[in-house]
């Protein structure tokens, strides 16, 4: 079973160096992802430049979601509606077909037909996706707190 270990380099925060475990606590566990349209007869993957950015591994998220601006930049068409809970109650968000690739890992691209769109463009660091339990269900995920890292086996 291949295992991916994601370590966190200490970040500078003012005069203090943030250690890997604190970094994981403050910023969460994230991976680099590339988001593109799902290849199909009328959508040629080479015709559209994928969006590359960071995705937060979010075990609390029911489904994987992608930043709304990213979906609009890629010119995606919606394939459904998702109800999501937030502070003001429940609202409807469009769902988009996306292909998620992991440039740093030897994983095949994953086609996700109903990724929910949410507004993530004001996050620090800027995330373009939240990896939810619908994708995490395919992996064995270990959170190694003292080492400040996560391990993903598949």
């Amino acid at each position: 079973m291949p295992v991916i270990e994601i370590n966190y380099n200490p970040l500078q925060s003012g005069a203090k160096v943030i250690g890997p475990a604190q970094n994981l606590f403050i910023h969460g566990a994230f991976v680099n992802v590339s988001i593109a349209p799902v290849p199909s007869g009328s959508v040629q993957p080479s015709a559209i430049k994928p969006t590359i950015g960071k995705a937060l591994i979010d075990t609390g998220a029911t489904f994987t979601c992608v930043d709304e601006d990213t979906c609009l930049t890629l010119g995606l068409n919606s394939v459904g509606i998702a109800n999501i809970k937030h502070v003001d109650g429940i609202s409807m968000r469009p769902r988009y077909p996306v292909q998620i690739s992991f440039p740093d890992f030897n994983l095949p691209p994953l086609n996700l037909i109903g990724a929910t769109s949410v507004v993530l463009n004001n996050t620090t660091p800027p995330f373009i996706a939240l990896i939810g339990r619908d994708l995490l269900a395919h992996f064995k995920l270990t959170y190694n707190g003292p080492r400040g890292r996560i391990e993903i086996a598949y």
Partner: peptide, 9 residues
């Protein structure tokens, strides 16, 4: 049912 996104919430 509504999907949960606690981190987002």
């Amino acid at each position: 049912m509504a999907a949960n996104y606690p981190a987002h919430l």
